[in-house]
Structures are given as C-alpha cells and as structure tokens.
Simulated scan of single mutants.
Amino acid sequence: MQVEPQDRLVKADAFSSDERAAVYRAIETRRDVRDQFLPQPLPDDVIARLLAAAHSAPSVGFMQPWNFIVVRDEDRRARVFDAFQRANEEAALMFEGAAQDKYRSLKLEGIRKAPVSICVTCDPTRAGKVVLGRTHNPRMDAFSTVCAVQNLWLAARAEGVGVGWVSIFHEQDIKTVLGIPDHIEIIAWLCLGYVDRLYAEPELAVNGWRQRLPLEDLVFSDAWGVRPAG
C-alpha cells in the first residue's frame, strides 16, 4: 500500500512558551569559542547527537551535500594548526597599525585546545549535475551545508558544548592533511569542547574589534533602502 505525502503530515503547532524560550536562548547565547575550551573529552553520544542535528538541516533539492570528518588524532590536528598559523600570519599582515596589533592580540587556540574537531565539507556532485533548486544558483549546495553547521552549533549550545569556526587556512593544506578529494569543498573546520563560561556578548565585540549593528539599520520594506514606516 502506497503512503501518500499528505498522510505523512504532522501538526505544525507552536512550541510552548518554555520550549520557545529555550530555542531563542540557544540562538541568542551561541558564541564562537576561540580559547576557553576545557580539556575533558566529548562523549561519543554527545558527538552523535550533534551530528544528527547537523544532518537534520534543510538542503536544496534534498541533496544533503555534507560530510563530517571527526578529527581526534593529535598529529593531524597539530598539522592543521601549523597550516592555520601560516595563514594567520598572512592575515595579520593584511591589517595595518592598531588593527594589526589588535588582530595579533586575539587568542585563536581552538585547534590545539579543543579535544575534538569536525571538518564539514560539501560535495557538489552528491545529487548529480542538475539539482532541483540549484539550477540558477550553483552555490546553493554550500549554503545548505552552512545550515548544517548552524544546526550543529545550536545543538552544541543546548548541550553545553562550545564551538569555534576556523576559516583562516589554505584549503589545499587541510585537504592534504585529511585526504579530501579535489572536488570536495571545505566549508568549516569546527573546534568542539566543553566550556564552563561564555562571553555575554560575541568575543570580538568584547575585545573591541566590531560591535553588533542595530537591526533597524538593516531592515528595508519592499525595496532596497526603503525604511519601514513608523
């Protein structure tokens, strides 16, 4: 007997006030952790739940282009840290004066301090050459993978696990360390570990790098540059 799509629908009721508050709390208190990781290992069941949350993300054409490489090996993480260090020095030289000094003062030790890392990748060939929803925007597979990263991040916040997103590296260096095929794109290197405290505001805001922009300055009504009435 064939099950019709409408027979798989579930009720779309709103969450209770407590459930809603928990979701918004995870969103509002999620932080990019760079240095505050505790040394205790993450249990396998926690990692499994985080990966399941990531795998529950939406994806264009339901292509699910992601893979997750869980990296515990200290030698591989050390090699990735070396690649990061080289790229980080290049990045520092792109800033001038006080900005360069401020950049160098930031503590970016997640790769070495976090007990586990997850390399999140995107396979653009996962669903074939023509993908529903990607026909006119070839980057939709990468955007979908970012949704998986955000799912993992919010689930980690609920678990009391800190996450740091490392993006300062030459992609080929990481591919070499992990044996990633040429056609696969690296979307994120995530450092994960327990933390006992999180900054009340984003760390870069606390350290004076940038401040959060007012939401009202970023919202337009019906067309670019048109402010909402009232």
Rank of each mutant, 00 (worst) to 15 (best):
Q2M: 12
P5W: 04
P5A: 11
Q6T: 00
V10G: 12
A14E: 10
F15W: 03
E19D: 13
T29N: 08
V33K: 04
P39F: 02
P41H: 01
D45C: 05
L51H: 03
D73K: 14
D73F: 11
D75M: 07
D75C: 07
R76S: 11
A78Y: 00
A78K: 09
D82P: 01
A83R: 04
F84D: 01
A92G: 09
D101R: 12
L108A: 11
L108R: 13
E109Y: 07
R112A: 09
A114Y: 05
V120A: 03
C122K: 09
P124G: 07
A127L: 03
K129F: 05
T135D: 15
T135W: 11
H136Y: 14
N137F: 15
M140L: 15
M140V: 12
M140N: 14
D141T: 12
N151W: 04
L154C: 02
L154F: 00
L154Y: 01
A156P: 00
V161H: 01
W165I: 05
I168Y: 01
I168T: 12
D173W: 02
K175Q: 10
T176W: 08
G179K: 11
G179S: 08
D182W: 07
D182T: 14
H183W: 08
G193Y: 02
E203D: 04
L204N: 07
G208N: 05
L215V: 10
F220H: 13
